[in-house]
């Protein structure tokens, strides 16, 4: 899996391409954990080019979403579609992790007051 890290102002944007499973979860964890440990962080994960993910990948995203709340940060997913969307819906995670339709909407959510 490829991970592209960029910034939109103070927001960290991570674009994932490929498959998030037990083999690639370590690489994502290595990039994501330092970001979500910072107080008041803002992180967007764009999954538009993610072809599939397994329950291992889901677990990492849930863990990071919880940690983000604990750190009073913001952690949002966007571009969740196709088979990836199906996995989120089957697992019920679509209600547990903030998801926006696209990058623009995710950024707007980050910048919204309160």
């Amino acid at each position: 899996m490829d991970i592209f890290h960029s910034r939109i102002g103070s927001i960290h944007l991570l674009q994932l391409r490929g498959r998030l499973d037990s083999r690639s979860v370590e690489a994502l964890s290595a990039q994501l954990v330092p970001l979500t440990e910072a107080l008041g962080h803002q992180v967007i994960l764009e999954l538009t080019e993610l072809q599939s993910l397994t329950s291992t990948g889901l677990r990492l995203l849930l863990v990071q979403a919880r940690k983000s709340r604990e750190q009073q940060g913001a952690f949002v997913l966007c571009g969740v579609q196709g088979f990836v969307r199906e996995v989120f819906e089957l697992s019920g995670f679509v209600d547990l992790i903030p998801i926006e339709s696209g990058r623009k909407e995710a950024v707007a959510r980050m910048n919204a007051p309160g």
Binding site: S55, L58, R59, L62, V87, L90, G92, F93, D95
Partner: peptide, 26 residues
């Protein structure tokens, strides 16, 4: 049925149950 969503991240067995549920639904 979908396992409870209060997933303990350190519990591999819970994650395996969730995976099993996803497999059954797929």
């Amino acid at each position: 049925r979908r396992p409870v969503t209060g997933l303990d991240p350190d519990e591999d067995h819970q994650a395996a149950r969730l995976a099993g549920h996803l497999v059954r639904r797929s």
